[in-house]
C-alpha cells in the first residue's frame, strides 16, 4: 500500500535519513523501531507531509491509483519546467495550495508523540473537526440550518459517538479535551484520527506514558482496528512487548538507515539489530 524508496532527508549538513526504503502491506501492522535519534519520527514526518524530503519517493496505492506524496507538498520549480506547461501548472498549484493536509486527504493520518489535541474544545468537537469530509461547510446552509446541514451534522455526531465508545471514552464526549487524564487524551487522539477515515494510520509512540494495563488495552484496540475496520497501521514504538505482540512486519532504523526488515521473530534474531538496538535497551525489551 505504501512504498518508500531511496528517501533522504538533510537538515543543514546532517543526513537524518539516508536512502530509506520499505513497504507497508495493505491490512498489516508495520512497526518502525530503532534507538533514539534513528530517524523514525523524521520518516513519519516525511510520509505525512510535514517535512519535504530532500530526495526519494513516497507513493501511496489506493483504489484511485497511485498518489505521489512528495509532489503534493510542492516541489521546487526548475527552468526546464517552462517547456512543460502542464507539469508547471501542477507544480505551481501544489506550491500554492499543497501541504500536509493533502497527505491526509490521500488517506494517511497520524497521531503525535506529544499528544496534540484541541485542548479548549470538547472531545466531541475534536472529533467533529476531523470529519471535514462529512459535514456541510457552506456558511449559508449553516446559518439557516438547512435540512442537509443538520443531517450532515447529526451523522458526524453519531460517527463521533461511535469512535468515542470504541475507545472507551463514551462518558467524556462533552468534557474539555485538555481536562482529560493523559491516557484518555492519547485514546482521544486516536479516535480523532479514525474520524478522518484513514487508509493508513500512523501512530507515533502510542504507548508512551501508558501503564501496563492501558498498553494491553491499546494492543487489543489496534488489532481490532486492523481486523474489523480494515485499517493499515504503521507505528513507531519503544515498548518491544507491544511491537512483538501486534506487528506483522518490523522495520529497524539506525542512524537514518534501514538495517533490517522482516517479521518480529526474524528481526529479533538479526545480529545487526541485536547489536544496534536490543543491546542498548535490552532490559526494556525484557
Amino acid at each position: 500500500m505504501l512504498t518508500v524508496r531511496e528517501l533522504c532527508m538533510r537538515f543543514g549538513g546532517v543526513m537524518a535519513l539516508n536512502r530509506v526504503g520499505f513497504d507497508v502491506a495493505a491490512g498489516s501492522v508495520t512497526a518502525l523501531i530503532g534507538p533514539n535519534g534513528a530517524g523514525k519520527t523524521t520518516v513519519f514526518n516525511c510520509i505525512t507531509g510535514f517535512y519535504k524530503a530532500s530526495s526519494g519517493q513516497i507513493r501511496l496505492r489506493g483504489q484511485t491509483g497511485e498518489i505521489d506524496l512528495i509532489a503534493i507538498l510542492g516541489e521546487p520549480l526548475h527552468v526546464g519546467d517552462a517547456w512543460q506547461p502542464g507539469k508547471l501548472a501542477h507544480k505551481i498549484y501544489y506550491k500554492m495550495f499543497g501541504g500536509a493536509h493533502l497527505a491526509t486527504r490521500a488517506g494517511v493520518v497520524r497521531t503525535f508523540q506529544n499528544v496534540r489535541l484541541f485542548k479548549e474544545m470538547t472531545a466531541m468537537e475534536n472529533l467533529l473537526v476531523a470529519q471535514r469530509h462529512r459535514v456541510d461547510w457552506r456558511p449559508l446552509s449553516g446559518l439557516v440550518q438547512s435540512r442537509r446541514f443538520r443531517r450532515a451534522e447529526a451523522a458526524a455526531v453519531e460517527r463521533g459517538w461511535y469512535w468515542l465508545d470504541f475507545f472507551g471514552l463514551g462518558e467524556d464526549g462533552n468534557r474539555l479535551a485538555g481536562e482529560l487524564p493523559y491516557g484518555r487524551q492519547r485514546r482521544l487522539e486516536m479516535a480523532r484520527a479514525m474520524c478522518v477515515e484513514p487508509r493508513l494510520l500512523c501512530l507515533d509512540e502510542p504507548a508512551a506514558g501508558l501503564n501496563p494495563r492501558e498498553t494491553r488495552e491499546l494492543s487489543g484496540l489496534i488489532r481490532q482496528l486492523r481486523d474489523r475496520h480494515g485499517v493499515t497501521v504503521c507505528l513507531i514504538e519503544h515498548d518491544m512487548g507491544l511491537v512483538m505482540e501486534i506487528s506483522d512486519h518490523v522495520v529497524v532504523l539506525d542512524h537514518g538507515q534501514v538495517i533490517a526488515t522482516g517479521t518480529p521473530r526474524e528481526v529479533g534474531e538479526d545480529p545487526l539489530v541485536l547489536e544496534a538496538y536490543l543491546g542498548i535497551s535490552g532490559e526494556e525489551a525484557a
Partner: peptide, 19 residues
C-alpha cells in the same frame, strides 16, 4: 470549529486534512 481548532493547534489541524 475549524478556526478554533487552528487557534488551538495548527499542526494537528493539518494532520486532520484541514487546509
Amino acid at each position: 470549529r475549524a478556526w478554533e481548532a487552528l487557534r488551538e493547534d495548527e499542526i494537528a489541524c493539518r494532520a486532520l486534512g484541514i487546509n
